[in-house]
Design a protein around this nucleic acid. Structure first.
Lengths: 227, 227, 227, 227
DNA sequence: TATGAATGAGAGTTCATTCAT
DNA sequence: TATGAATGAACTCTCATTCAT
């Protein structure tokens, strides 16, 4: 199923066709197993043209990462509604996120799976995008604290860890949702909200789970999670 | 830096050396980018010997997966203490998990990153291990419910999603901890406990975050996470 | 002594060059001992080009067999003259056959020697060609019977055996002629005609050599071949 | 189905086991495709022992050729009965030949198929055996001439060609008989006697098939084969 | 006599990349 | 703008052969 072979298209269009093909192949096969031959064929052009426009396999992969990262960020941004309370913002952001990853499984695979397995260069490009999302979530956590009129004295490092955990959980759930038929974006988002939001709330109220003083042999409990 | 060339070792020993080398190379480069030459050199043996003992690149990779999966499961099992309350069990299991992944970053990479990007066969081997862990966590969640003498009427599907989210979050945090200098296993475990345990407790009390009825246009909040 | 390196030739031409080289190498070394490197070098191209056009060593060998089989059949067909009496037809067919095998020793080696030692697939391709020739000879034997206005009541099975023997003898003589300097195609053909034609004639007259009733102990001769 | 592993056997016995295995493998796979591993396993010994006794793959193959050549010659010799008339001698020799090749298909394959496709060294070893047989047949032809009390003035070269043709036909028929279920050694021998003996007789009476003076365009017949 | 451990050398095959038009 | 023709380099895998015991 190569693209219809239309000759003499403007460069920008051809490039998008190539990127479409590349994202699909890279997403399904991985960087190393993807072959430029297959990508060119799927794009409906000759291999030299791919090189003329995208320069090399590495550059092509980079371009895929950048395009898909931007698309994902844009989707999440479009889902966010700064006027809503923090929990609603998180909810809509998550929903947008899961919707996008469900609609673009290959792009998501490129970002989350493939880019991280090959060289620091690619990983760096993804890390930049991820940092943006973590920052967004961090902001929400702090906003939630403000909404609650509490200054729960959360140290920055702790907030960072929480944001990281939330984003990490979201990423894992995206893979899970894509791999599990019948799980919708809303369900994935709801699962995560249920899982995380109360915990965050507790934290802000100063209820935290305190690790036992000593790993071995100590018996002392902690704030019981079940009230 | 090839291993010291000790000659004429019994087969079982050589095999472990080869697996050590293979896990390292596979973990760092990925399945496709790893070359049998490099693995053999790192193991301090000739390539034919690798083939004689491990048969093929695929089989070698499989053997790595199986060995590392077993090691991980064993580590978590050794960390679990069935006599403790559920939260303490989760805590010690998580600590063991993060400790193991921190000490075996290459093995963890093989399991979590590399094995999932190449062929259903490999993914299946990992999935089996993951299923064991998810089952363990699921058990803990149910035990927590029992501990609290509540029958919170959590539907099985919801418990599955929660366990999935928890395991997913743990996996992501393991990557994060490995990539972020200065984060200890205990810190990672504490972050996740804080993040998750209170939420689970709330859920069992029937406090759940209810998504807005309609994505577009509805303004009304929900159970506020921040009290 | 690689072929003169002429660059940028149309595919069809290059393919023939490759087949030329392959037939030579396969014919001289055999299928297994022939190396794609050597073939590519003799063809004056790089190995990848051989693979691009001919796909694999097996396919290349198959292509050689098909090309050489066709050439041989065509040569024999071109030599046949359906208007002549049967003996003359056989003579001209044999002459064409020995001429062709003498001019294409490598092709003949591929067909007769090499193709039969590797896998049923290859043997099958040659068998098809051989069957055509045997059919042609069978026809001639029957035509000779008709020419003689005899119905010698030759059973089909016997005719088949005779045709087989004649073709087998021709094949062996082709090898012998190629290996023995100074033996021309005409000489080989004459030898075979002398050897076979009178015997056939006798057979059609009902003079056949009758084997002794019992292998051991019987003394009695048979129709003496020498009158 | 490796040979039963009996330890510490006298060298001569072990060598025969190895040759048995080697002939089987060489005969079925060909020289190049046969692997020393497979031969050693089939022989029920370790590879170094094969090298200790037989020295190298080449030497092993040579030994196979020599053993099988001797066996074949011996079989034919044992079948010959110098006291009989020439035709009966030929008959019994042929029968012995076809019987032996039918009982030792792998050995026959080594001699007739495999040895001729690899290097002049091996071909030479077979040629020596073949020469013996051709000499035997030549003798018979001359004896037949004597029996007939004729000195048909057959030039030596012609006799050589005839013997060659007869032996070649026999070789081809051996392959054919081995490949065609239901064809017995006696049938093969009878076919060849019928095919050849009358022709020889005619020749000795001076009836020979005379080739047309000119290949192209000449119409002139020849001694009609059908009287 | 006999073998487990080990390897140098080379096979077929594929791929990212470029040249010439 | 676009492509058929072509290749250097690297990969997985196999094999005949030897060493040390």
């Amino acid at each position: 199923m190569p693209a219809v072979k239309t000759k003499r298209m403007p460069r920008a269009v051809r490039e998008q066709q190539m990127l479409d093909a590349a994202v699909k192949i890279f997403g399904q096969r991985g960087y190393m197993a993807a072959s430029m031959d297959e990508i060119a064929e799927l794009a409906g052009v000759s291999k030299p043209l791919v090189y003329l426009y995208l320069n090399s396999k590495e550059d092509l992969f980079s371009a895929c990462i950048r395009r898909e990262a931007k698309a994902l960020i844009d989707a999440v941004r479009a889902g966010a509604r700064p006027d809503l309370p923090a929990d609603r913002q998180l909810w809509s952001g998550l929903t947008a996120f899961f919707t996008h990853t469900a609609r673009n499984p290959d792009g998501w695979s490129v970002l989350h799976l493939q880019a991280r397995t090959h060289g620091e260069v690619f990983a760096g490009e993804v890390a930049a995008m991820r940092a943006e999302i973590v920052a967004f979530v961090t902001q929400l956590i702090l906003a939630a604290a403000r909404d609650a009129h509490r200054d729960p004295d959360l140290p920055a490092a702790e907030v960072a860890g929480l944001a990281e955990a939330l984003v990490g959980a979201a990423e894992s759930l995206a893979d899970w949702a894509n791999a599990t038929p019948g799980v919708t974006a809303r369900q994935a988002a709801a699962t995560l909200m249920n899982f995380a939001w109360a915990g965050l709330g507790d934290l802000m109220n100063g209820h935290r789970w305190v690790p036992p003083a000593d790993d071995e042999g100590d018996q002392q409990g902690s704030t019981s999670p079940v009230r």
